[in-house]
């Protein structure tokens, strides 16, 4: 730790066995169950990656929220132009009920978009998609997530890389300046 820099209350960490996930409750049974029974296994095998937002004012640190990302692809029927269109899927994003109305959902989404942006600079990603819950739709639409171009996947929302860049590039530039 840098001398004179106070430790932060919140830290974003890749999910690992030491995290106390069992007290997490987002009041959404599927998203709770995904964290309890799928997220760690998938993260340990690199099938998807889950990041938890830890509130270090508790001991052990309380998980205030989490998100899960994994790679996905679209396959064009006509291969003459492109063979495959790489995207990232936001598999899950949830915050604990004790952290409502504090902007934690936005915080997690911005962190997820930063991860996608950083990955897109290394491997090429055209955007991020997700199948939102009814409650989550409003959050994603605020960030200009749009209806998926595929007519038979209207349940998906899609945000292209150029919009992700618009949101996170200024933040990353500021963070680099502070380092």
């Amino acid at each position: 730790m840098n001398k004179g820099v106070e430790p932060p209350q919140y830290t974003l960490e890749k999910l690992a066995t030491h995290h106390d996930i069992w007290s997490f409750d987002c009041q959404h049974s599927y998203l709770n169950a995904f964290l309890f029974y799928h997220a760690l296994r998938e993260t340990l095998h690199d099938l998807s990656l889950t990041f938890v937002l830890c509130d270090n004012s508790h001991s052990p640190a309380k998980v205030a929220g989490y998100f899960t990302l994994r790679s996905d692809s679209y396959y064009p029927e006509d291969h003459s132009e492109v063979d495959l269109i790489p995207v990232v899927e936001l598999v899950a994003l949830a915050r604990d009920k004790d952290y409502s109305r504090q902007g934690i959902g936005d915080y997690l989404l911005i962190e997820a978009l930063k991860n996608v942006y950083n990955a897109s600079k290394l491997v090429g990603i055209t955007g991020i998609h997700l199948a939102p819950s009814q409650e989550g739709t409003r959050l994603y639409k605020r960030y200009n997530f749009g209806t998926h171009p595929l007519s038979y996947r209207r349940d998906l929302l899609f945000l292209p890389s150029n919009t992700i860049r618009q949101i996170v590039q200024p933040l990353l530039a500021e963070e680099t300046d502070l380092e």
Binding site: D72, Y74, D78
Partner: peptide
């Protein structure tokens, strides 16, 4: 997820639209 030729074209064009 399989894209038709027109869906592929639409998607690729949308990637270059001004946010």
């Amino acid at each position: 997820i399989v894209l038709s030729a027109s869906e592929t074209k639409d998607l690729l064009q949308s990637l270059h639209a001004a946010p």
